[in-house]
Design a protein around this nucleic acid. Structure first.
Lengths: 144, 144
DNA sequence: AAAAACGGTTTCATTATTAAACCTAATTAA
DNA sequence: TTAATTAGGTTTAATAATGAAACCGTTTTT
């Protein structure tokens, strides 16, 4: 009756979602990328209830996505390497969202820090460098 | 009191998650990429309760991720362009999962259809082609 | 010293998820 | 041709997750 059960799954997508598939997790990571570290700031930006933010942050620390450092008796939440490694996931998701969903107001964007321009569209490449389209990949599943 | 509220958000990540952020959605998309089209096959592979699979599929059709076609009085669920466009998201997620989570058994993989080899690691590029690391991007937020 | 803010925890109501039973139409087996 | 089974769901009732608001001790500001 619990909600998730994909921990040791053969599929890396399932395992990834077991860690970051919760409703708020990727949004917290997004804010952490934007420099947010304090409980109250996450709460304000996300508009999430404090209790569930507390449990999410605790879970994320347990999963190794965030680490806490006590700065002046005030704890800060910072991305670990494992959390930072989600950057390409966020960028890819953002590009899909920009292409296929409509904003009411133009808002947040991920930009190249040097030029402050948008990023190039993510491409999926084969080992030899060929650009792969949607029909060019196969998903090999264990039970199929 | 409802669960989601990010529909017209300024942030494309939030809008994307509003569509694909549900617990089972990306796993359904993954299976659809693997060629699954029928209700029972989704149910078998995912191990999800039939009622929630039914509502998820209905939602995903409403959101334009899947379309149904009545093949011999038996409906099939197929990816739309919008759904297929999530391929890079799945690939990036899978690569993160492969790098940062541990499988109990080696299982599903996304492969280049021609060579049947793994894909190249996704790179985030600036407009001018520079490879961007984690410190090389900035997230511009509306309320920050 | 008093007041406000920070970082939560607790409580209780609402919503989502689940397993299991059930149902109807279509297909397969006898 | 009938009977049994399967596919594709829907309904029901229990459990788990989520949410808003109140509360609480500590820390910071006034």
């Amino acid at each position: 009756m619990k909600r998730k059960c994909l921990e040791g799954d053969g599929c890396p997508v399932a395992r990834a979602l077991d860690v970051v598939g919760d409703w708020w997790t990727l949004l917290i990571i997004r804010d952490a990328f934007a420099g947010v570290t304090r409980f109250g700031d996450f709460q304000k930006h996300l508009g999430v209830a404090k209790n569930i933010l507390a449990t999410r942050l605790k879970d994320m620390v347990e999963q190794g996505l965030l680490q806490t450092s006590e700065v002046g008796a005030r704890s800060e939440y910072q991305l670990t390497d494992k959390g930072r490694a989600l950057m390409p996931v966020l960028v890819t998701l953002a590009q899909w969202g920009q292409a296929y969903t409509e904003p009411e107001e133009v808002g947040a964007q991920v930009l190249d820090a040097r030029s402050l321009k948008p990023l190039r569209k993510v491409e999926i490449l084969a080992e030899d460098g060929r650009v792969l389209g949607i029909g060019d990949i196969v998903t090999q599943m264990p039970g199929t």
